Every structure is written in C-alpha cells, then in structure tokens.
Amino acid sequence: MVTPQLLVVDTSYLFFRAFHGVPSRLRGPAGEPVNALRGTLDALTRLLEERRPTHLACAWDQDWRPQWRVDLLASYKAHRVAADGHSEEIPADLVVQIPVIHRLLTALGLPVLGAAGAEADDVIGTLAALFAGVGAVTVASGDRDFTQLVDDAAGVGLLTPVGRTPGWREIHEAQTRETYGVGPASYVELASLRGDSSDGIPGVPGIGDRTAARLLDRYGDLAGVRRAAADGAVEKGGLTARQAEAIRAGADYLDIAPQVIRIRRDLPLGVGPDDLLLPRAVADRAGWDGLVDTYGLGSPATRLLQALGL
C-alpha cells in the first residue's frame, strides 16, 4: 500500500519566483505577460515529477496582511503596502497574471485553498495539522517561517529552492539545527529575537541569528532569556549588558512578536484528506483548454498534465 504523501505549495511564492525568474519578454498571443503563468506551471510539474505525491494542495493568500496581526504589530509587512493603503505592492505585469493562475489551477481540479483573515502560511499550517496521522507532508516554499512546521515525528518536511536553480532542497530537523542552531520548535522564539525585515518584524537590536540561538540554548527558551535579562544576568557565554538592556527595553515587543510569527494550524478550511487527492481528470476541460489557448501555454500545460497522469 502506498503511503499517503501530501505536497502543499505556497502558491504566491511560486508565482513571485516565476515572475522574477522567467524572462519578462515571454508574451502570450495578444502580447500579454505570461512569464509567471508559464513558470508556475513548470514549477508544479517539477515538484510533481520529483516528489510523486498522492495528495496536493495549493495554498492561497486570502488576506496577505491580516488585520489581527497588524493590530498586534503595526509594522507587520507595512513596507509592502501599496499606495492605496491596503493592497500589496506588486508589479503590474504580475498583478494581471495572478487571477489567471487561480483560474488555471481551479480548472485543472487542484484544490486552491484560502481562508478569510488568513495568509497562505496559516492555510499550510492547518493542512499540515489536518494530515497528521494520515501520511507525510511536504511544504514547498522559500519562506523560512515554515521552518516552525518541520516535525520529523509527524512526517512534516520543508522544500526550499536551491539558489536560482529549478531544484529544491529538503529540510528536516537536522538541517534546521544546522542552519539556525535551534530546532523547529524554537524557531518562532529565535525569529522574535532576531526579527525579519522581509515581514517588518524588527527584532531586538543587536541580536542576530547566532546570538539568538546561543541565548536560547543557554537559557532554555525566550522566557528564560527574558528572566535572565530582567535579573541582570550578565555572564561570559550568556547575555552582555547591552543585550540584557535591549531585551528589557523590548519587553512590549517580545510580548506580541511570537503571536505574529506563529503560523495558525486551526483554520476552518472545510476539507478532509480525501479532498486533496490528485485529480483523476481535468475538472473543467473547456475552461482549461480556453485558458491554455488564450495565453499560449501549450507546452507547460502539456507537461503538467503528463506529470499528473491526465
């Protein structure tokens, strides 16, 4: 019996990477941009060929910057807000391709899952929890926040891209410790201390990856680090006076940062494992064929159908 294997893709990561990695000179029959379309289909094909999953889900950002996270931390993704004050700043040539990607995936019959007030990260975390006990889960994304989901015992791994190549590298607990100096269970606390400029999370001044990992190892967890700072525990191999002061000064930030960074795993997605099985036929053949013809996607579309066995 084949062990169930769920591949969950961070769809927005795929199409952003495709847009910036596939030449913009590629145009459809009417001169429209298609580089993100072609690159996303090609990336899915490669993942299917290499991973051979039994189940597949495409996580979608229903809300790229949920208000509840902004209420906790006003700087959260603030640097990526467009001039209209609420949408994400995205190149115009990519904006027009995003809804087409959604229509293509839906017409093909792949589950495209999002939830109100939630990012794709939270959808992925919920799917990983949903599939626990059913089979293995592999998350495909270049977002390092997914490190917190890695769990060898539960069979949850992460695929991250290998530089600018089409290849992917598999991440488990050993690789997490090798890269960050802590295990996945400590990643949220490490990220809280060191911050993440890509998401507008400031971190504690003067504390980077290595220092955060060393302090968490020395004092056990973030609460232990904060207790040591509050007690003025300045010692060799532990906190310096400057670090202790920075941690004390950042008390309000450290109260909320883990809540912002932590991926939700309890969204009401309304699906079960059987809803994530690979499609046995194209769900909307006319719609799929129409989109493929309209945007000149014949070759990547054919390869994707072959990878799915359709």
Rank of each mutant, 00 (worst) to 15 (best):
R265K: 10
P184G: 02
P258I: 04
R226N: 05
E235C: 10
I201E: 07
L149N: 00
G220A: 05
P273Q: 03
A153M: 08
E189I: 03
Q259G: 12
D221V: 06
A136N: 15
L190R: 04
R262V: 08
V139N: 00
L222H: 07
R262I: 08
R226F: 06
Y187A: 03
G157M: 01
G167W: 04
D252Y: 09
D266I: 04
G183N: 11
Y219Q: 05
D143E: 07
G163E: 08
S186N: 15
V234T: 07
D145E: 14
D199N: 11
A233K: 15
E235L: 12
A229D: 02
S186G: 13
G250P: 09
A233Y: 14
A249R: 14
Y253N: 11
I256T: 13
R242W: 07
E235Y: 13
G163Y: 02
I256P: 07
V182L: 04
E245P: 10
L239E: 07
D151S: 00
R194C: 11
T160Q: 13
V150F: 00
G206Q: 03
A244L: 06
G272W: 06
T138D: 01
T160R: 14
Y187W: 14
T160A: 12
L254E: 06
L158E: 01
S198G: 14
V204A: 04
G135N: 01
G142T: 12
Y187E: 07
D252W: 05
T147G: 07
R248C: 12
G224S: 01
V225R: 05
R169L: 12
Y187H: 10
A154H: 01
L267A: 02
T138Y: 00
A212C: 09
V139F: 00
V150M: 00
S141R: 01
R248D: 05
Q259E: 15
R164S: 15
L215E: 08
Q148T: 02
V150T: 02
G238P: 11
S192E: 05
R169F: 10
R194I: 08
D221E: 11
G270L: 04
I261V: 13
L269E: 02
A233L: 14
T147K: 02
A154T: 02
V225Y: 04
I263F: 02
R169A: 14
D143N: 11
A185N: 11
E170T: 15
R227K: 14
V225N: 06
R226S: 05
D209N: 14
G183T: 08
D266N: 11
P205F: 06
G142R: 10
Q259N: 13
F146G: 00
P202D: 09
G232Y: 09
D275Y: 03
Q243L: 10
Y180C: 06
I256V: 14
V150C: 02
A174V: 13
I256K: 12
A136S: 15
Y253M: 12
G270Q: 03
D152P: 01
D145N: 13
F146E: 00
T147Y: 06
A241C: 11
L269D: 02
G272N: 08
L190M: 06
